[in-house]
Design a protein around this nucleic acid. Structure first.
Lengths: 191, 191
DNA sequence: CTCGAATGTCTAGCGGTGCTAGAGTTCGAG
DNA sequence: CTCGAACTCTAGCACCGCTAGACATTCGAG
């Protein structure tokens, strides 16, 4: 009975279309512009169709965020692929993280600013999130010194996120980003 | 013509009532619950009255945020009032900052998460914001070492904000906060 | 081939949002 | 006592996330 298979394929296709379209609108005009009406119109279906794929808008944001975590992981891994050590490795990671946020502001918002309903700290934490954390851990573990590597990653990640968040919301100037990153990396690699 | 003066007093009173009520609702039930209708009902005026005091909801959030900056400045100043030096001073400041955010989550959101329309980085930056930054600067200047103190403050503040933001949004566990703060202070005071 | 059931999609609408035009009222000045 | 300005209100706009229920389509059994 291949009919059902075809329908399932089509359904999966449409699922992906919704996620991609939501991301597209968010990148074009920000998440505020991602309304269920606009989204439905763009995919050329009515609003209720969205709710047959997702519980609600939050879950759509979550799906976009998951894509973001996979891409962030790739960006980090690629930034340290040449095998830099010590300060150079940390600097490469930090720059890759900030560049990712600058290049994908809407994606970054979905991952870290908006409520996407994703569990971050319990057993149900999705794999892409764990992998992103793992990518940070792999790079930072050997500069953590005698500190707990997991804790070290959390704090360094927090600092990066703080810089990105305050800059993106206009609370820090964009201009000083490079110097701030430099100082941050210094402090986390013992000058 | 004292009539006008009385009216102006009453108007200022109502202005403050709006700000205090908005803050109250936000503290009770979060900013999502601060709607113009609910706010109007609580102050026992109709919605349009709000718009004779503020351009819109964003400006009300901004007014609450300004209160927050004044209180944060006081909290920081009081935390370092005993004149601790070096690591102890930085630790006191960091703990005061995080404690402030924990104690006033809605206030913190207005200051650093929501779009309150406040200018942070240009000549029109309101005094309370400058003073809060100044309070950080006064404490941190003499542990900045050979780094530019302003830059040092920006980065340390970013790190604190990152910790607070990620914790408050469930991306970090609350449980590890103290250990993370410890590590952060270590890194910014040369171990 | 027919027909009832299941599946899928749509229209229409609920209760809510921020915000505002214009009507109505109040009140001080002359 | 009247008039005009200042003020506040009612009512409503366009939009939001979300959903009940009508309608169409497709499927499997007889």
């Amino acid at each position: 009975m291949p009919v059902r298979e075809r329908k399932e394929r089509e359904r999966a296709r449409r699922h992906q279309l919704i996620v991609a379209t939501a991301r597209g609108i968010a990148e074009e005009r920000g998440w505020d512009a991602v309304t269920t009406r606009r989204l439905a119109e763009r995919i050329e279906y009515s609003q209720p169709v969205l709710y047959s794929h997702f519980r609600g808008k939050r879950e759509i944001v979550g799906a976009v965020a998951l894509e973001g975590f996979a891409e962030l992981t790739a960006a980090i891994r690629s930034a340290v692929a040449g095998g830099p050590r010590g300060r150079a490795a940390v600097a490469a990671l930090a720059e890759a993280y900030v560049a990712f946020a600058e290049r994908n502001p809407a994606l970054y918002d979905a991952m870290f600013l908006l409520d996407a309903g994703l569990p971050f700290t319990d057993p149900a934490t999705p794999a892409p999130l764990r992998e992103a954390f793992g990518a940070l851990l792999d790079t930072l573990a050997d500069v953590a010194g005698d500190a707990d590597p997991g804790l070290f990653v959390e704090v360094f990640w927090s600092a990066l996120h703080g810089l990105v968040a305050l800059t993106r919301s206009g609370r820090l100037t964009e201009e000083g980003t490079a110097r701030r990153l430099d100082l941050l990396v210094d402090r986390f690699t013992g000058r």
